[in-house]
């Protein structure tokens, strides 16, 4: 029986990311960043999005530069190996910012999403005390418990979380491994989750190892098969990080015109991820994924028998 959840990237973005939506993405930090989904959001000219994430390694910058974003709720927006995020800067510098930013730390964004996941209005922390995040983000408040000051971190519940995973079945069961960042907190807090997968596998594969499943399949609204969909970020077991792409982007996006050219070349003039990978070139892709020379590092099998 064909599943309703397996769909193309354009269909998933069109169906589940309306203008104005709050979208959590880039949740594992520097790896598993759903660039293919972000680029499709740009091609569909989505408007007024609220982006939620911990750190964003250039994808938020691209969505901001393309004019899709009105609000950023995050701990850090930049280019991890190269420096600042130029579109983010341009949107915020000067006296007429075109973007609202709600400053967080990595811990506070995780707590906000965990509170959303728990269905409680806030979680407390002793982080951030004395910092100006309490001044620039008006949603934080100091509360006292028996005289002990705590920062009240209000809950966040994104409309959609987008997670890039190694493999999924067509029902929404998904395996993810390596560092997870805030993927679990965000996926639990979000009302719906779009799962992007390098591989689509039979459900029996997913169910053979339920401890590796990222979230309950009933929260998944769409499964998209998109090999290479996280490039230039790395996917454990599939490909490494394309450091040069981050540095080239850093140079290209120094001016608004330069970013527009970059967007035209890498997003608007390619129809989707396969065309993007073709533009990247087979040689460069092979250097990252090393299909011939890569040494698999298989985990030891676990026995669920009884």
């Amino acid at each position: 029986m064909p599943s309703r959840k397996l769909m193309s990237m354009p269909d998933a973005v069109a169906a589940f990311i309306p203008d104005g939506a709050s979208v959590a993405l880039g949740l594992a930090l520097e790896s598993l960043i759903p660039f293919a989904a972000g680029h499709e959001i740009i091609r569909q000219r989505k408007q007024g999005l609220t982006l939620i994430g911990p750190i964003s390694d250039i994808l938020f910058d691209q969505l901001i530069g393309a004019g899709c974003v009105s609000r950023v709720i995050a701990a850090w927006v930049g280019n991890v190996s190269a420096g600042l995020a130029h579109n983010y800067r341009r949107a915020l510098e000067g006296d007429k910012p075109s973007l609202v930013v709600e400053d967080h730390s990595n811990f506070s964004i995780a707590l906000a999403l965990r509170a959303g996941a728990m269905g409680v209005p806030y979680l407390p922390t002793r982080s951030l005390l004395g910092s100006d995040l309490l001044r620039s983000n008006p949603h934080f408040r100091i509360i006292h418990d028996d005289g002990v000051p705590l920062v009240r971190v209000p809950a966040l519940a994104p409309a959609v979380a987008i997670v890039h995973t190694q493999r999924a079945d067509d029902q929404g069961g998904a395996h993810c491994w390596g560092n997870l960042g805030i993927s679990e907190d965000a996926a639990l807090a979000a009302r719906q989750v779009i799962v992007i997968a390098e591989e689509i596998v039979p459900s029996s594969v997913i169910r053979s190892d339920p401890n590796r499943v990222l979230l309950p399949a009933f929260k998944v609204c769409a499964v998209v098969h998109e090999p290479g969909g996280a490039h230039p970020s790395p996917v454990q077991g599939h490909y490494g990080r394309d450091h040069a792409m981050y540095h080239d982007y850093h140079q290209a996006s120094r001016t608004a015109e330069g970013f527009a050219r970059w967007q035209s070349e890498w997003i608007d003039s390619v129809s989707g991820r396969q065309a993007y990978l073709s533009r990247l070139g087979a040689g460069r892709w092979a250097d990252l994924s090393r299909p011939a020379t890569r040494t698999p590092r298989l985990a030891a099998a676990v026995d669920y028998g009884y």
Binding site: A75, V77, R89, L92, E93, G94, P97, D103, S105, S127
Partner: peptide, 26 residues
Amino acid sequence: TSYIGDPCAPTTKLPGSGGATDIASL
């Protein structure tokens, strides 16, 4: 690592905290 100048109208917007606020706090 957040704002040079007035946070409401910064001359330079820097990337932000990441985990730095947490590390320095805790």
